[in-house]
């Protein structure tokens, strides 16, 4: 189990940031991802593996409408 935006979220071995965003259907382009408070650049989404217990934030920069 990991924390995603401070909520419990299922985890599996080898889960990457890219896969997590896909599983959560997070499609909005202006999004900032951090793992344990370290920002992950977009080009590293596929290679960044999330470990069990990690704290992930996926902040959508939308205050629009």
């Amino acid at each position: 189990m990991i924390k995603l935006n401070n909520r419990d979220c299922e985890w599996h071995e080898g889960l990457t940031v890219e896969e997590l965003l896909r599983l959560k259907n997070y499609t909005y382009p202006r999004i900032v991802v951090s793992v344990n408070a370290v920002i992950v650049p977009e080009e590293a989404y596929a290679s960044t593996v999330i470990e069990d217990g990690d704290k992930v934030e996926a902040i959508h920069l939308m205050a629009g409408g």
Binding site: N5, N6, R7, Y26, Y28, E57, A58, I59, H60, M62, A63, G64, G65
Partner: peptide, 17 residues
């Protein structure tokens, strides 16, 4: 919605729990 649009901050980002 021109006063406040907080859906992502609240529902998705959980920034204002």
């Amino acid at each position: 919605h021109d006063e406040a649009w907080l859906i992502f901050m609240d529902m998705v980002n959980n920034q204002i729990p």
